[in-house]
Amino acid sequence: MTLKNFFIGLSQNQILNNMAKKYGLKLGAQSVVAGTNIDEMIESVSELNTHGISATIDNLGEFVTEKKDATDAKNQILHVIEAIHANNVNAHISVKATQLGLDIDEDFCFENIKEIVSKASKYDIFINFDQEDYSHLAPTFRLLDVLSKDYDNIGTVIQSYFYESMDNIERYKDYRLRIVKGAYKEPEELAFQDKKDIDENYLKLIEYHLQHGKFTSIATHDHHVINHVKQFVKAHDIPADQFEFQMLYGFRKDLQYELAKEGYNFCTYVPFGNDWYAYFMRRLAERPQNMNLMLKQVFNKKTNTLVGIGAGAFLLGRLSKRKK
């Protein structure tokens, strides 16, 4: 069992997710989640803007199974759009189709997302369709295809661990795209399993879209990838307004500020809300080197009410010893 699979397993544990909602960000996720409400999130985004950094805002939540919850999520995102406009912050929004009812009914989900996209369009706010696991890949692309007939303020994400990603990036080259490695557990018949293969495909996708695409959001914390991109855009005379670097809120803050100061477009992925647990675990799956952060802030001995999480920490310790 790898550390990545371990954290993905934790992210899918509904009991732990419910406990995390109950006890809130005091468990440690406050370092990577920009508050639990819109006011706190706007304050965080405003601070980023003072450093020349824009934001893409994620109202946390996914895999919703009740229409009421999906409607509540839609209404919250509509409030976020109003808050971006009213506070004049440099930000756009990332949405997950499953939070807006994709697992309930695709037509219901479509109407929710259409309402969001329509309202955002009035304020010239971009909406990014986050991609989730493979079972939701095609349905999310379908939503994009239909809405793009009437709206041009939308784009999506391409995950480099899927074998079909090069085909998809060619298909959607005329869209603003965020390119990521991928944070879900996918079977070998659908996705690369080896980190080296994922990384190689990641660079291929970035290079293709930089040369042929509309606008490229390069989501990485890896300074090797960042340096590669810097050299690539210089060698191919790619304008600075055709791409941006993206990182997650709370990760490599100094490097975020440094890149913005160097004159690169920079965008921070800003999650907020109570439904932070699955997001946090997947961030640890993507970057197991943040294990110390988790052990110190989330799986600490004082949090003795979360017995299940404490057991997870014990298993993690056993796994880390094996890796050594």
Results as ranks from 00 to 15, higher is better:
R282Y: 10
Q159K: 01
I238K: 00
V89E: 07
L293D: 15
S118L: 11
H224N: 14
A34T: 06
E262D: 15
F232R: 02
N153H: 05
G9H: 05
N201H: 09
N274A: 10
H51W: 07
D174R: 05
F314K: 14
T156D: 01
L3H: 03
N87C: 11
R322C: 01
T268W: 02
D107E: 15
M247S: 11
Q297F: 11
G310I: 04
N168D: 10
L316K: 03
K195E: 13
G273S: 09
H79D: 15
K67V: 08
I125G: 03
E82M: 04
N274L: 07
D152Q: 12
P139D: 05
H228G: 05
G308D: 15
V64W: 04
K22S: 13
D133I: 02
A138H: 04
H236A: 05
E258G: 00
M1A: 13
L60D: 04
L60N: 04
V117Q: 01
S217K: 02
L147F: 03
D194N: 14
K74V: 10
G312T: 10
P239G: 04
K74M: 14
V33M: 06
K96H: 11
V80E: 02
K4L: 09
Y249D: 04
Y208S: 05
S118Y: 07
K173C: 03
K149E: 14
Y134C: 03
E47V: 11
M19T: 09
L60H: 07
V89M: 08
K4C: 05
L25D: 10
I8D: 01
F126H: 05
I198C: 04
M247H: 08
S165L: 01
S118I: 03
E47L: 14
G52P: 02
A20K: 05
F215K: 01
A285P: 08
M281N: 09
D105V: 07
I154F: 01
E244Q: 02
E106T: 13
K96S: 09
K122V: 08
Y257E: 14
N5I: 08
T98N: 11
L48W: 00
G35C: 09
S94D: 06
N274F: 04
F266Y: 06
H51F: 14
L48P: 02
E132N: 09
Q131D: 00
I238M: 03
L10N: 03
Q76H: 12
H228T: 11
I125A: 07
K119T: 13
V225D: 09
K96I: 05
K4V: 04
G273Q: 08
Y163N: 04
G28Q: 10
L48V: 06
S135Y: 06
S121N: 15
D145P: 06
V95Q: 03
K22G: 06
P271R: 07
K261F: 09
E47A: 13
R322I: 14
G213M: 00
C267R: 01
K181I: 06
K253A: 11
A313K: 13
N128W: 00
R283W: 04
S118C: 11
M281K: 08
E258K: 13
E115A: 15
Y184E: 12
M41F: 02
L177A: 01
A20V: 08
P288S: 12
N201K: 05
L102Q: 11
V117L: 09
K22C: 07
F141G: 01
